[in-house]
């Protein structure tokens, strides 16, 4: 298992919002849920490679900014047309105000 990587400060993301994080040539999306938990997924929509961090977070759903494909960002599950491929998710922890993700 690879190391934990610092993505951002917890305060960088509002509740019920998302932020883009690029690392090692890859792009991720880091989420803060309405109940103040943090999650991480691949950063690009599985439909047309659009950055999900430009999309809207509502409850536990991230909606792609381009074609409204929806995913549950906690589980990565695709929620109907036009997306049918699930998003990969990554473990997240908060340590001393920093958000860390484990990039596998």
């Amino acid at each position: 298992m690879s190391d934990w990587v610092e993505a951002c400060a917890a305060d960088d993301i509002d509740e019920e919002d998302v932020m883009r994080f690029d690392h090692g040539g890859r792009t991720f999306a880091i989420y803060r849920s309405p109940d103040d938990e943090f999650f991480a997924t691949d950063g690009l929509c599985t439909h047309e490679k659009v950055h999900l961090a430009d999309g809207l977070v509502m409850d536990d759903i991230i909606e792609c900014p381009k074609h409204n494909g929806r995913f549950n960002y906690k589980t990565g599950a695709a929620r109907g047309a036009p997306v049918c491929v699930n998003l990969r998710t990554y473990p997240v922890k908060v340590d001393a105000g920093k958000v860390l993700i484990q990039i596998g």
Partner: peptide, 10 residues
Amino acid sequence: GNAVARDIRL
């Protein structure tokens, strides 16, 4: 890019 997407959705 998708600069206006989120606010248009709202």
